[in-house]
């Protein structure tokens, strides 16, 4: 009976907690330019756009645990980062301002499925364009080009690049391109590959010493390193090219063309640059503007 009343007490106190609490965020964030929503947008022959229109809001798939790219503030629920701003830009040009966006956080492994299932209208979250994925979905962009790199603990000097990974435990996300590359090129033994569902889980394991390196695109890793510079460092030798695209339903060419137009305009009129400067660029790194790959 004692155990039961203890459990009941715990539940009650857990519920009571909702009554009182701090508000706001422990850290402040920089502001990116707000996008004006366009009016009277039509996208001829796009079932996705018709669906968005009928619903009155956009459902965007994003990451929630990647500082600098797609990050959800746990204390306010606000999303921020480069990918998020790109998602907002696209929504605005489709005629929906920031208040009419619903964000759905979807980890890498569930991305294709979320787009196929119609769970999200489009996906913006460190989504590398490749041919295999193009069989299931389609991509607009690229809107950014990253490269695969390694994140290690600050005091680790034994890892200096991809060729020094042998015998080290390497973590990345289930079904992601970086971990497939590690596997295909035999950068480390199969038994040393750890695949988890999110990068932040990998970073937690790196922090605790269960893995020796986290590998994925430098943009993602820089975000984690910038967040805790006294713990982690990025090696800085990229060994691949990862063009990031906006994931869209496969058969919706009309919407893909429209999104490409939006991106092209943003690249040309300086919007892209100002978004970059307000998010990823804050670390001081510069980036090349990507060239769109229309198909």
């Amino acid at each position: 009976m004692k155990l039961r009343s203890l459990a009941a007490g715990l539940l009650v106190s857990a519920l009571a907690l909702t009554g009182c609490g701090k508000e706001g965020s422990p850290t402040g964030g920089g502001q990116a330019p707000t996008q004006e929503a366009a009016s009277d947008v039509t996208v001829e022959g796009s079932p996705t756009f018709d669906k968005i229109k009928a619903r009155g809001k956009v459902v965007v798939g994003v990451k929630e645990d990647q500082p600098g790219l797609g990050y959800k503030d746990p204390t306010t629920g606000e999303f921020s980062g480069f990918d998020i701003e790109i998602a907002r830009l696209v929504a605005a040009k489709l005629g929906f301002d920031a208040t009419k966006i619903e964000y759905k956080a979807i980890p890498s492994a569930g991305r294709e499925q979320a787009i196929i299932n119609g769970d999200v209208d489009y996906y913006v979250g460190t989504y590398t364009i490749n041919d295999k994925r193009k069989e299931q979905i389609s991509f607009a962009g690229p809107y950014f080009v990253a490269g695969q790199d390694l994140l290690v603990r600050k005091d680790d000097t034994s890892i200096t690049g991809p060729e020094t990974l042998k015998g080290k435990k390497v973590c990345s996300v289930t079904g992601s391109t970086p971990i497939q590359r590690v596997r295909d090129q035999g950068l480390t033994e199969a038994g040393n590959i750890v695949e988890l569902q999110t990068y932040s889980q990998c970073v937690t394991q790196l922090d605790q010493g269960q893995v020796d390196a986290v590998t994925t695109d430098d943009a993602i890793l820089k975000g984690y390193a910038a967040q805790e510079p006294d713990k982690f460092k990025v090696i800085g030798k990229t060994f691949s090219e990862e063009p990031y695209g906006i994931g869209l339903p496969k058969d919706d060419k009309a919407l893909r063309d429209k999104v490409n137009d939006i991106l092209q305009t943003a690249l040309d009129d300086g919007t892209w640059q100002s978004i970059y400067d307000a998010t990823l660029g804050k670390s001081g790194a510069t980036a090349e503007k990507p060239t769109l790959d229309r198909y």
Partner: peptide, 11 residues
């Protein structure tokens, strides 16, 4: 995630 912190088995 939590058990390795107990360090019963080497990392």
């Amino acid at each position: 995630f939590a058990f390795p912190l107990l360090k019963i088995i080497s990392q």
